[in-house]
Computed example of a mutant assay.
Amino acid sequence: MKVLVTGGAGFIGSHLVRQLLAAGHEATVLDNVSTGSWQHLPAGRDTCNCWEADMRDKHVREKIEQGRFDIIVHLAGQSMVDISIKDPEFDASENIMGTVNILEAARHSGVKRVIFASTAAAYGDVTEDRLPIRESEKLAPMSFYGLTKVTVEKYLKLYHDLYGLDYVALRFANVYGERQGDTGEGGVISIFAKRIAKGQDITVFGDGRQTRDFIYAGDIAAGIIAAMITGKANTVYNLSTQTETSLLELIELMGKAAGRTVEPKFAAPREGDINRSVLCHEAAVQNLDWQPQMDLAEGLSRTISYFKGC
């Protein structure tokens, strides 16, 4: 299939492009490289069609329409909670208006399906008795970032209802892996991995018993490709491991991967931090014929090895 990947030079996008090419798909990447890099792609820009542009530009819409893509995977956007709170206008401009520009291009050019990168932040702080979180959980985002993602999910549904544009929205757990920056929802691993790779100290905010659901970027990419072909579209799926890992357990595994004991420093908990987080992935397993494959210890080993080589 002919696939456009917005944000394809970024962290998750670079994993996805590799899998798309390996599966024989034709990939085009749209990225303004404000946070990504063309060097994230295998062989750089020579691997696939690469468009360096802002998704909000009107000429980008025209170019997409001329491209006649089968699928658009929409990964581009503002992904930092703190930035969304400091600058809600910028967050909305990228995540809502940028997406509308992409959706308009899709509906006017016969795109069969849009795959959208949503987030576990859509759920907000869910009580522990509701874990693991299912897709039916009430949406209560605690940041403008989460709010814009929820808003785009509603845009996708209405575009389907009004124009017949198929979609799948994927709410990611905490994603980690090679080529990750110190941003986004899985950024704690890349922050720790860079410091551990350099032999530096790491700091944990809180007692380290808080849990997260860490999923390897390659498994996310496989889930996206599964969403491209599923017969059960026009809905939302969680992509996760459905496994809680505490920060203390994470640090122990990272120390083993680095071949040394890591003794973290501790600081006061940060306001607004969630104590426990884990997503239910049963719907994705059943309807996308998908399973996360990467063992956390192996994924962390790959991630630390990558950062050691940087």
Rank of each mutant, 00 (worst) to 15 (best):
L4H: 10
T6G: 06
T6S: 05
G7S: 07
G13S: 00
L20M: 09
A22W: 04
A22E: 15
H25D: 12
T28W: 07
T28V: 08
V29Y: 09
L30A: 10
D31C: 01
V33G: 00
L41W: 06
D46H: 11
E52K: 15
E52W: 08
E52H: 12
A53T: 01
R56K: 04
E62R: 12
E65T: 06
R68N: 11
Q78I: 03
Q78V: 05
Q78S: 13
M80Q: 14
S84I: 05
D91Y: 09
I96A: 08
T99R: 02
E104W: 08
S109H: 01
G110S: 03
K112E: 14
V114M: 03
I115M: 00
F116C: 05
T119W: 09
Y123G: 05
Y123Q: 07
G124R: 05
D125H: 12
D125K: 11
L131V: 02
R134I: 05
S136Y: 08
P141M: 03
T148P: 04
K157V: 10
Y159D: 05
Y163N: 02
N174H: 11
V175Q: 07
V175F: 06
D182V: 11
G184Y: 02
I191M: 11
F192R: 00
R195K: 15
K198D: 12
G199L: 09
Q200M: 13
I202E: 08
I202D: 10
T203P: 02
F205M: 03
G206N: 09
G208Q: 00
D213C: 02
D213G: 07
Y216C: 00
G218H: 04
D219I: 09
G223T: 07
G223C: 02
A226C: 11
M228K: 04
I229G: 13
T230V: 02
N238F: 03
E244H: 01
S246C: 10
M254A: 01
G255C: 04
G255E: 07
A258P: 02
G259Y: 07
R260P: 08
A268Q: 13
A268Y: 08
I274H: 09
S277N: 12
C280M: 05
H281S: 13
A284Y: 04
V285S: 11
N287H: 15
L288V: 06
D289H: 15
Q291F: 11
P292F: 08
P292R: 00
M294G: 00
D295H: 12
D295W: 09
G299E: 09
T303M: 00
S305Q: 15
S305E: 13
F307N: 04
